[in-house]
């Protein structure tokens, strides 16, 4: 059971199924206008609606997360800015912090944010397209950032997820190839499998029970 939680195009469902994925989260801009979305629950693999939030500042991020939480099953926040990275890690309503290392010289996550991300169950995304699109003489930097995140994950135990950020079929890769690639940034086999299967499943399970949680630690059973 492998999942890819950062897909930008609904037409990739068939190809993803052929490659062995069993669930996708697709970022939909104009969901109402797209006819493909009408049949979205009839596809053979599970499809979740996801929204990528690009915020100007932490306050803007919080407002957007609040507004879109009901509409999408997966909420991603585009990271990169230090304040937004931190705000996303501190917000339990956020599911995935996307690319905290984007346009930065470091990984974008420190021990404080890592602890917060672990407490609030915010997953951090390792984006394969970002790695493969980087020119080969700069790939070492991206790999170093990923390695740093894996190191923090081992210490603070937050979720990492590996995604493809696919726009066309040429961006999708087979999950077993991605597991093999994850050795390059220091993940072992179990960690890589969990980043592609358990962590995404955790996000969905958590969102299914989100409405039933009254306050932190108290859940409606019936």
């Amino acid at each position: 059971m492998y999942y890819d939680f950062h897909i930008n195009n609904i037409n990739l469902v068939e190809e993803a199924e052929r490659l062995g994925y069993s669930g996708l989260a697709i970022i939909g801009g104009n969901q109402g206008e797209d006819n493909e979305w009408e049949n979205w629950d009839r596809h053979p693999i599970q499809i979740y609606k996801s929204i990528l939030i690009r915020a100007r500042n932490p306050e803007d991020m919080r407002q957007k997360v609040k507004r879109f939480r009901g509409e999408a099953q997966v909420i991603m926040v585009q990271g990169g800015d230090q304040k937004i990275n931190r705000a996303a890690c501190e917000d339990p309503q956020v599911d995935i912090l996307s690319m905290p290392y984007y346009n930065r010289k470091d990984s974008g996550i420190n021990h404080v944010m890592a602890r917060k991300a672990s407490q609030n169950e915010v997953a951090v995304e390792l984006n394969i397209k970002h790695l493969s699109r980087t020119s080969s003489h700069l790939q070492y930097k991206v790999l170093a950032h990923y390695r740093e995140l894996v190191k923090l994950k081992r210490k603070f135990n937050f979720h990492l997820i590996i995604t493809s950020n696919a726009q066309s079929i040429y961006d999708l890769h087979s999950p077993l190839d991605l597991i093999a690639l994850s050795r390059c940034f220091g993940m072992n086999q179990e960690e890589a499998v969990s980043a592609l299967s358990e962590s995404p499943r955790n996000i969905i399970e958590r969102n299914n029970t989100r409405n039933k949680v009254v306050v932190d630690g108290v859940k409606l059973v019936n």
């Binding site: 490659l19 493969s132 890769h173 190839d177």
Partner: peptide, 23 residues
Amino acid sequence: VSTVRSIFPLINRYKGKRVVFHT
């Protein structure tokens, strides 16, 4: 084997055209 497999996701372009390898 797994090291060789890990090369495939990093191939994405050839002479400006898109290309992808799958095992």
